Simulated assay, not measured.
Amino acid sequence: MQIVDLTRDAKGKMEEVARLLLEGFTESWNEWDECLEEAEESLQEERISRIAVNDEGRVVGWISGVSNYGGNVWELHPLVVHKDYQGQGVGKALVYDFESRVKEKGGITVYLGTDDESGGTTLFGQELYPDVLGNLKQIQNISNHPFGFYKKLGYEVVGVLPDANGFGKPDIFMAKRVK
C-alpha cells in the first residue's frame, strides 16, 4: 500500500474516492454528485487530501482535512476506508500520514467530529441536557463506534454537540496535539 496526494489530474482516483464516500458514509452522503464535489473540494488550498492505494493501483482509503485558526488547528474530515480493507491498518496509516502533513505545515492540533447516528455509544438516544459535560464523561463505546478507533490513536474526547443530527444523535468532538 502507498499513500499519495489526491490530485485533479487523477480523475479516475477522484471517482474512486467518491465511490468510497457513497459506500462508506450512507447516512452522510447519498448522491454521486455530492460525493464527487466533496472530493474536488478537498483539493483547495489550505487542505490536505491523501489516498491509500493498493498494489493494483485502486484507492482503498481517503483522508482529508482543512486548516483553521490560522493554521494552528486542522480538522480531519473525512476518513474513509473501503470495507474490504478495514481492520488492516489502512485507516491508522492514513491518520498518521495526515498528522505528519499537519506538522509539516506548522499545525499543532488535529480535531474531528464523529457522529453517533446509530447507537454506537452510550450517548445515543440520551437526553444530554442539563449536564452535558457530566454525561460526556460517562461515554462508552458499545458498538464499534469510530471514537474507539481514534482513542487508540491518541485522540481525546473534548466535547459533544447534543442533537446535532436529531434528538439523541450527537456529534462527538475529539482532538490530539501533534506537535
Rank of each mutant, 00 (worst) to 15 (best):
residue 5 D to N: 02
residue 5 D to H: 00
residue 6 L to T: 08
residue 7 T to F: 06
residue 7 T to G: 06
residue 7 T to E: 11
residue 9 D to F: 10
residue 9 D to P: 04
residue 10 A to M: 15
residue 10 A to Q: 09
residue 11 K to E: 10
residue 11 K to W: 06
residue 12 G to M: 00
residue 12 G to L: 13
residue 14 M to L: 14
residue 14 M to I: 09
residue 14 M to R: 10
residue 15 E to I: 08
residue 15 E to F: 08
residue 16 E to H: 08
residue 17 V to H: 07
residue 17 V to I: 05
residue 18 A to G: 06
residue 18 A to E: 03
residue 19 R to G: 10
residue 20 L to W: 05
residue 20 L to F: 02
residue 21 L to K: 07
residue 21 L to C: 10
residue 21 L to T: 01
residue 22 L to A: 11
residue 22 L to T: 00
residue 23 E to C: 05
residue 23 E to F: 06
residue 24 G to H: 14
residue 25 F to D: 05
residue 25 F to H: 07
residue 25 F to E: 00
residue 25 F to M: 06
residue 25 F to Q: 00
residue 26 T to Q: 11
residue 26 T to L: 14
residue 27 E to W: 08
residue 27 E to I: 15
residue 27 E to K: 07
residue 28 S to Q: 14
residue 28 S to E: 13
residue 28 S to L: 07
residue 29 W to T: 07
residue 29 W to K: 08
residue 29 W to E: 13
residue 29 W to G: 03
residue 29 W to N: 11
residue 30 N to D: 04
residue 30 N to R: 02
residue 30 N to M: 01
residue 30 N to Y: 05
residue 31 E to W: 06
residue 31 E to I: 15
residue 32 W to D: 00
residue 33 D to F: 03
residue 35 C to F: 03
residue 36 L to D: 13
residue 37 E to G: 08
residue 37 E to R: 09
residue 37 E to D: 10
residue 39 A to C: 12
